[in-house]
Design a protein around this nucleic acid. Structure first.
Length: 700
DNA sequence: ATGCATGAGGT
DNA sequence: CCTCATGCATA
C-alpha cells in the first residue's frame, strides 16, 4: 500500500497532474492544517480529512487528541481576540506569531556560528557565562526598581561593558586573527571610529556572533537604555515618531500595521520598537519583551574570550552561589541551550570535560556524548553534596521520584521564601533550590518552561528546567504606568499533576509562585495572550526531548514517520522523514509544529510504553523501479540572482517571473516555485539555531 | 538536512 | 497565483 508514483519529468511539461483521487500522500497533504482550519472555522462543516498515505476520512470529533489541540487553539484565538488594544497600555496585538517572526528574523540575520574561530581555548559555555555575569541588571530589577535607579544601573552596565570591550580591543589589537571586526558585513563602515556607537555596534555584532538567539533577561533589560536603543536604530530614530498606525485586521486576527501610510504585512521591528518607545513610560514591559526577541538590541555585554579572571569588572560568581535558594545571576535561555550545544560540540572537539565548568563526566553517555540535558548544579556547583550526578539511575519510576522530589523541593522552597522573598536584590533570574534532604536540585526559573525528567543511561539529572523566556510575560493584564513592578507570578497548578499529565516528556509551563520576591501588587507585566502550549520555547523544549527520546529508542526519523500511520490516532497518517526532521529541527511553521506536537507526543509515549517488547518492523520497501523525479538544481549564481530579486520583490508578478526566468534561463515554473519556497522559508519558524549545531553533534 | 516540488484550499 | 503542509530526491 505504499505510494510513490508521480513521476514528473523535468522537461518542463510536468506541472498540472491529475489528482482526482486521494490515494497518495501528495494528495493528502495539508491534513493537519485542514483539521485546524476547518475546526476553527465555525461555519465549516467539513468532517472529512485527508490524512497521510492512508487518506482516512474521519470525523474530526472522534479524535480526542486533535480535539484538545483544536480546543486549545480556539482558546488561544479567543484570548487573542478579547485582548484589549490600548495604546496607553501594552500591545496585546502582538501575536505569538509576531514574536516568532521577530525571533525568526533575528535568526536569519544573525546566524549562530560555530565558535571555533573565536576562542578555541575556552569553551563557549564559559564565554557565555562571562557574558551573563557581566550583566548586573535584570528584568526583575527593571520592574522593581525605580526607573532612575534602573537607568543608572544600565548605564553602569553599559560603561562597564564598554570598558571591557576596550580592554578586549587593546588586548587583541594585534591579533590579526580577530576577523570579526573586519568582517564587513558586521561593521558599519560609515560610523565614526571608536565612538560609543560603533563600539556598540561591534559589541553587539560580536556578541551575536556566538550568542544564541533569544537573548534574555538581563541582556534585554540593559538594553532598555534609550541610548542603546537609539544607537542601534539610528536609521529610524533620527526622525520624529514614526508614522505608524495600528489597526485591526479581520484576517487571521492579526494586527495590521501601516507604515508611512502603506499597509505592511508586519511592522518592521525597528518601527515597532519606535512605536513602543513613544509610549515608553507605560510600555516598559512590552518593549522589554520585544527587545529580547530581537538581535540588534541584545546583549551589549562583551564577549571576552579570555577575560575571565583578569577583569576587575567581573562579578565574582561564587559570591552568588553559596546556599540554598541561591540566586543566580541572569542566565538566559541562550546560555542554557548553548551550553548544552557547546557541550556536544566540545566533547567532539576533544575539549576536556573539566573545561566545561564542572561538567561531570557522568553526563556523558557511553559514547562520550553529552546526554541528559543540563543541570545547573553541574555548572554552578551549588551543592556538591547533592550533586545528582552521583546518583545511579534506577530502572523504573525515575520520573516519579523526581516529581515527588520536585514537589517536595517546591514546598520547601515556598516555605523558605515566605520570610525573605523581598530580600533578593538583583541579578536574579533563576533560583537554585535544593531542599537539602534529597539528591535533587530543582532549578526554578522564573516563568519558564520546564523540561522535566531527563534521565540517561547512567546518570540521573536533576529535574532539568530549561530557562526559557517568559513569553507569556508575567501575570497581570494592565499596566501601572508609574510603578512597574512584578505581581505575583502565575501560581502553578499542582506541580506533580502537571508533570504527570505530560508523561514527563513534554515540558510544561510553570511559574514559580514566589518569583524572586517580586510579588508586589497591582502591577502588570505584559502578557502575551497566548495559550501556554503555544509558547515557542515550549515547543522547542518538546522537540528537543522528543529527539532525545527517539534516539534513545533507536528509532529513525523515517521510522517515526511511518509509525505514525500505525498509531490509531484519528486522521493521522504517515509522515515523511523530512517532516519528522523538520519537526525536530523546528523548521516547520508554528502552526505546523503545534499541530504535530500532540501526534508525535502520542507516538513517543506509545513507543516508550512498548519499548521493551517492540520489534522493529523492517518495513518492506520494494523500491519500484519507476522513473524518479529529477530534481532541478539551481546554480549558485542563479540563486544569487534570485535572492537579489527576492530582496527587492518577494512576490513578483507573473510577468516579472517570466522575465527573471528568461534572464536566468530557467523555466518559469521553476522560478515561481523558487519564490514560493523562498517565501515559505522566510516564514518558517526556526526556534533556534540549535538545530544546526544539533544534528552535527548528535547524529550518529 | 534541505532544495525543489506538488496539490488542497483560498483569494 | 498564493499559502501551507509535506514529500521525493539528493547534497
Amino acid at each position: 500500500m505504499e505510494n510513490k508514483q508521480h513521476i514528473l519529468t523535468n522537461d518542463g511539461s510536468d506541472s498540472s497532474n491529475t489528482s482526482t483521487s486521494c490515494k497518495n500522500s501528495n494528495i493528502c497533504s495539508n491534513r493537519l492544517r485542514t483539521i485546524v482550519t476547518s475546526e476553527l472555522n465555525e461555519n465549516s462543516k467539513k468532517s472529512r480529512l485527508y490524512f497521510g498515505n492512508e487518506c482516512k476520512t474521519k470525523q474530526i470529533n472522534n479524535s480526542h487528541k486533535l480535539n484538545s489541540l483544536i480546543t486549545t487553539d480556539k482558546s488561544y484565538q479567543t484570548s487573542f481576540e478579547s485582548a484589549e488594544i490600548n495604546d496607553s497600555c501594552l500591545n496585546p496585538m502582538v501575536t505569538n506569531h509576531e514574536n516568532f517572526n521577530l525571533y525568526n528574523n533575528r535568526l536569519s540575520t544573525t546566524p549562530l556560528r560555530k565558535s571555533s574561530s573565536s576562542s578555541p581555548q575556552q569553551p563557549n559555555s564559559q564565554k557565555m557565562l562571562d557574558n551573563e555575569i557581566t550583566t548586573k541588571t535584570s528584568i526583575l530589577e527593571w520592574h522593581s526598581t525605580p526607573e532612575s535607579d534602573m537607568l543608572d544601573n544600565i548605564k553602569a552596565d553599559n560603561s562597564n561593558n564598554e570598558q571591557l570591550l576596550l580592554n578586549y580591543k587593546s588586548q587583541s589589537a594585534n591579533q590579526s586573527s580577530d576577523s570579526m571586526y573586519n568582517n564587513s558585513s558586521f561593521v558599519n563602515n560609515t560610523s565614526k571610529n571608536n565612538d560609543k556607537n560603533s563600539a556598540y555596534e561591534k559589541l553587539i555584532n560580536q556578541t551575536d556572533d556566538h550568542s544564541p538567539p533569544l537573548s534574555y533577561s538581563s541582556q534585554s533589560t540593559e538594553n532598555l537604555n534609550e541610548d542603546s536603543v537609539r544607537t542601534n536604530h539610528q536609521h529610524i530614530l533620527h526622525s520624529q515618531p514614526h508614522p505608524i498606525e495600528k489597526s485591526h485586521s479581520n484576517f487571521d486576527n492579526e494586527c495590521m500595521w501601516k507604515e508611512n501610510d502603506q499597509h505592511v504585512d508586519s511592522l518592521s521591528f525597528d518601527n515597532e520598537i519606535n512605536y513602543i518607545k513613544n509610549h515608553w513610560n507605560s510600555n516598559h514591559n512590552l518593549l522589554m519583551n520585544k527587545l529580547r526577541f530581537h538581535s540588534n538590541i541584545t546583549t551589549p555585554t562583551t564577549t571576552l574570550p579570555s577575560a575571565t579572571n583578569n577583569s576587575s569588572n567581573e562579578l565574582n560568581f561564587n559570591e552568588h552561589t553559596s546556599s540554598f535558594d541561591t540566586m543566580i545571576p541572569c542566565i538566559s535561555h541562550n546560555f542554557l541551550t548553548n551550553f548544552t550545544r557547546t557541550s556536544y560540540d566540545t566533547v567532539q572537539s576533544n575539549f576536556t570535560q573539566e573545561n566545561l565548568y564542572g561538567l561531570s563526566s557522568s553526563n556523558l553517555n557511553t559514547n562520550g556524548n553529552m546526554v541528559g540535558g543540563f543541570a545547573n548544579t553541574n555548572i554552578f556547583n551549588i551543592d556538591n553534596n547533592s550533586h545528582p550526578a552521583s546518583v545511579p539511575s534506577n530502572t523504573h519510576n525515575k520520573l516519579e521520584d523526581e516529581y515527588d522530589c520536585a514537589e517536595h523541593c517546591l514546598d520547601t522552597y515556598n516555605h523558605s521564601h515566605q520570610q525573605h522573598r523581598h530580600h533578593h536584590s538583583h541579578n536574579q533570574f533563576m533560583t537554585i533550590n535544593n531542599c537539602g534532604n534529597c539528591e535533587y536540585n530543582l532549578n526554578f526559573p522564573n516563568d519558564v518552561t520546564l523540561a522535566a525528567g531527563t534521565t540517561t543511561n547512567n546518570f540521573k539529572t536533576s529535574l532539568n528546567c530549561y530557562l526559557l523566556p517568559p513569553i507569556n510575560g508575567f501575570n497581570g493584564s494592565t499596566v501601572d504606568n508609574n510603578h512597574s513592578q512584578l505581581t505575583d507570578g502565575i501560581v502553578a497548578p499542582n506541580f506533580k499533576t502537571r508533570l504527570n499529565s505530560s508523561s514527563g516528556y513534554s515540558s510544561q509551563n510553570f511559574t514559580h509562585p514566589t518569583i524572586l520576591g517580586c510579588n508586589h501588587s497591582n502591577s502588570s507585566i505584559y502578557r502575551h495572550p497566548v495559550e501556554l502550549d503555544y509558547n515557542p520555547r515550549e515547543l522547542e523544549a518538546f522537540s528537543e526531548l522528543f529527539k532525545q527520546r527517539r534516539i534513545k529508542l533507536g528509532v529513525t526519523q523515517a521510522d517515526v514517520g511511518k509509525a505514525l500511520g500505525n498509531l490509531k490516532i484519528s486522521g493521522v497518517g504517515s509522515l515523511s522523514q523530512s517532516t519528522i526532521c523538520r519537526f525536530e529541527s523546528l523548521t516547520l511553521s508554528h502552526n505546523n509544529m503545534v499541530a504535530l506536537k500532540p501526534v508525535l507526543q502520542a507516538w513517543l509515549e506509545e513507543a516508550e510504553a512498548e519499548a521493551s517488547s517492540r520489534l522493529n518492523h523492517p518495513n518492506i520497501y520494494d523500491l519500484d523501479e519507476e522513473r524518479r523525479r529529477k530534481r532541478t538544481s539551481i546554480t549558485d549564481s542563479e540563486k544569487r540572482s534570485l535572492e537579489a530579486f527576492f530582496s527587492i520583490q518577494p512576490r513578483p508578478s507573473s510577468e516579472k517571473i517570466a522575465q527573471i526566468a528568461e534572464k536566468l534561463n530557467l523555466k518559469k515554473n521553476v522560478v515561481r516555485v523558487w519564490f514560493c519556497n523562498q517565501r515559505q522559508k522566510q516564514k518558517r519558524m526556526k526556534f533556534s539555531t540549535l538545530g544546526m549545531l544539533h544534528h552535527s553533534a548528535t547524529r550518529t
